[in-house]
Design a protein around this nucleic acid. Structure first.
Length: 635
RNA sequence: GGGCCCGUAGCUCAGCCAGGAUAGAGCGCCGGCCUCCUAAGCCGGUGGUCGGGGGUUCAAAUCCCCCCGGGCCCGCCA
């Protein structure tokens, strides 16, 4: 039920009929004006109402159901709604515990792939934004009635994984030392091994360099050695072992060997790599669980390579009419179909975007990421019988993601190509130093959550209730909310104070607001006042409820929730929900302070106020759940 | 060099897709409010050439073009 929409449509239809204009067209002219002008207005030029009819619109609107007052001011026709009738509509709509959720996607099946971070280090802030978005998207789509499956693509077939796995095998010990979480330990091993390899490379180049290049290289070498020195203190044992191995021979060559052997499915390589990756995933999985970003299916990239799936895709591509050679290796040249505007449009490829040829394989015959991803995309569609696949992936991958859709298209998988969504978001930038997992310098999601949780506990203690479990939930919610409340296309500059904000525009503020509402209800129960929905509704005098502007404003805001939901689902944008709850909470808190509920002497009004509290409570709760935040009864 | 994204108050952001009435929040700063349903709150004040310039329009933060600043991409990496 959509109270606001119902009223809008009803008035549009009524006006349309009276003026002989299509109601849908009229509806497009509706707008919610600033408060002093009324509750709803029609912007005449936008409603495509011919100028000669403008004078008669006011009369037509007056007398439509739900309209209490109406006045034309210039190009606007402003109206005030019949508050009591509207409130009754809201009362009926809010009777449902799932108020606001609309069955917009009933029967559709959607895969949401998110995080899919390389299993070589712990999740960092960037992955946190991805996780926050992905989990919220899944919840949003489920609330809209879709069958949703979340997946994590384990990229275990790259050079980086081979570096990490080599480091782990040199170390020879797969359990992290006490005090280290698995993924954090793996991250250290990866960074250190990688640094040794980089140093190796720089030294090799140094031997052949001229003077200018030489000083440059020396500077780079210094910086690597400084990073290494830092890591040496953390893991001295590993440092010794890597030094020994580095003296024996080329680590870089061993990485290449391992990578080739792993792709070929050789047992020794499998056991080395899988063991190391599994270890890292244990840590990552724990973090995602803690963050409330659950994954339904974990897919190993290597499985696609070992089975014939990637090879099949490769063969199809090589036989395609778009096949060509690029710098001596087989590739796909998309330029012919890119000239077709309609293809670009259907595949959502920006008109100005130039797409370089897609190289199909390395000259050593190993496979490439984008080609493997074609096979993976088909697998996602196939296994879940998905209508749509959403990939939550950073904006830096627009190009390969576009190539992916194009490749599917030329292979004849048009439905898949058209329904593969690259859900792109901008990066999280660190204010000071640049983050680098290759060098072991990252801000991890774990440390952010630890800090948030700690801070929430301090706040709780200051209020005399030190519950670590509650603090953890508040802390996690704060971080999630901070990452979700910014439009995905906007880059976030990571600031601790920002992510850990517990004031007005924050999850703790919303949780607090909800708990306040629950507090009223709890108090009522203690006093033996009925609090059930139907009991309240039977006793409430809704006409009195809307006598006050502040309460009326709240009623209208509550009525907006389904519209916000619809828009958020349509545009796949959780930040709209976030913005909306903040507005609702602000309004509720202002009201809370100036207009007591339980001390209201007028019985009909008192119950009506209690009903209003219940609506707000329901909306905040349902909205928070869309973001992956569970409300708390008490703070 | 080309492409994509972003630029709104000192700071963090909403509004831009589907143009409309004096551009909205929060933080910060200044001043008030706890014998009363949770002060993570409330009330008041402070603060903006909507990056700049053109254009389209009765009307532009919003649409188009140019320019400036920032981020990202343009790899036999992922």
């Amino acid at each position: 039920m959509r109270p606001f929409r119902e009223v809008l449509v009803s008035i549009a239809r009524c006006v349309g009929e009276r003026l002989g204009i299509d109601a849908d067209v009229v509806a497009r002219g509706f707008d919610v004006p600033r408060e002093e002008f009324g509750d709803l207005s029609i912007v005449l030029p936008r409603a495509s109402i011919p100028r000669e009819l403008w004078d008669s619109v006011e009369g037509a609107v007056r007398g439509c159901a739900f309209v209490a007052e109406c006045r034309r001011v210039g190009i606007y026709v402003n109206m005030r709604l019949d508050r009591a009738r509207f409130a009754e509509l809201v009362a009926r709509a809010c009777e449902s515990p799932s108020y606001g959720y609309l069955e917009l996607l009933g029967g559709t099946r959607i895969v949401v792939e998110y995080v899919s971070a390389n299993p070589i280090h712990p999740l960092h802030v960037g992955a946190a934004r991805n996780a926050a978005l992905g989990q919220s998207l899944a919840r949003l789509l489920r609330a809209a009635g879709a069958e949703v499956q979340t997946r994590y693509y384990i990229n275990d077939v790259g050079r980086q994984v081979a570096i990490m796995a080599l480091g782990m095998s040199i170390l020879g010990e797969y359990e992290p030392p006490p005090g280290f979480k698995e993924d954090h330990w793996v991250g250290i091993v990866y960074a250190m091994t990688n640094l040794f390899i980089e140093v190796e490379g720089i030294r090799r180049e140094l031997a052949l360099a001229d003077d200018a290049r030489r000083s440059e290289l020396l500077k780079e070498l210094d910086s690597r050695l400084a990073d290494l020195a830092r890591l040496k203190d953390v893991a001295p044992d590993l440092f010794e072992k890597l030094s020994d191995e580095a003296r024996k021979g080329s680590l870089s060559e061993r990485v290449s060997q391992l990578m080739r052997a792993y792709e070929a499915g050789e047992e020794w390589a499998k056991s080395v790599v899988r063991r190391a990756v599994e270890l890292c995933l244990r840590g990552i999985r724990a973090t995602l669980e803690r963050f409330g970003a659950p994954i339904d299916v974990w897919d190993w990239e290597s499985d696609l390579v070992w089975s014939s799936e990637v090879r099949k895709v490769l063969e199809m591509l090589r036989r395609s009419p778009y096949a060509t050679m690029h710098k001596g290796v087989p590739a796909i040249d998309f330029s012919p179909i890119l000239k077709d505007r309609s293809v670009r449009e259907r595949l959502r490829i920006p008109p100005g975007l130039e797409i370089p040829p897609l190289v199909l394989m390395r000259s050593d015959a190993t496979t490439l990421y984008t080609v493997r991803d074609i096979a993976y995309t088909l697998k996602k569609f196939r296994e879940f019988r998905a209508d749509k696949v959403i990939n939550v992936i950073g904006s830096e991958q627009v190009l390969p993601q576009a190539q992916l859709r194009l490749a599917l298209y030329i292979l004849g998988y048009r439905r898949e190509a058209e329904n593969l969504i690259h859900y792109s978001y901008e990066m999280v930038q660190l204010s000071g130093t640049k983050m680098s997992s290759r060098r072991g310098r990252i801000v991890t999601l774990d440390e952010i959550l630890d800090e948030a949780s700690k801070r929430a506990l301090r706040e709780l203690e200051a209020r005399g209730s030190a519950d670590p479990g509650k603090a953890e939930r508040i802390g996690v919610a704060a971080v999630k909310f901070a990452l979700l409340s910014v439009t995905p296309s906007r880059p976030i500059r990571f600031e601790w104070e920002n992510v850990l904000s517990f004031e007005r525009n924050s999850a703790p503020y919303l949780l607090y607001t909800y708990a306040r509402a629950r507090g009223i209800e709890r108090k009522a129960e203690e006093r033996g006042i009925p609090t059930g929905y139907s009991e309240l509704l039977a006793r409430a005098d809704l006409s009195k409820l809307t006598e006050s502007d502040r309460r009326w404003r709240l009623v209208k805001l509550v009525a907006q929730f389904p519209e916000v939901f619809a828009s958020a689902v349509e545009s796949l944008d959780p930040s709209q929900v976030a913005t909306y709850i903040l507005r609702l909470a602000d309004e509720f808190n202002s009201w809370y302070d100036e207009d007591p509920v339980l001390r209201e002497p007028d019985e009909g009004l008192r119950y009506a106020k209690m009903l209003l509290v219940k609506w707000v409570e329901r909306v905040i709760s349902n909205a928070l759940k869309l973001l992956g935040i569970e409300p708390l009864d008490r703070m």
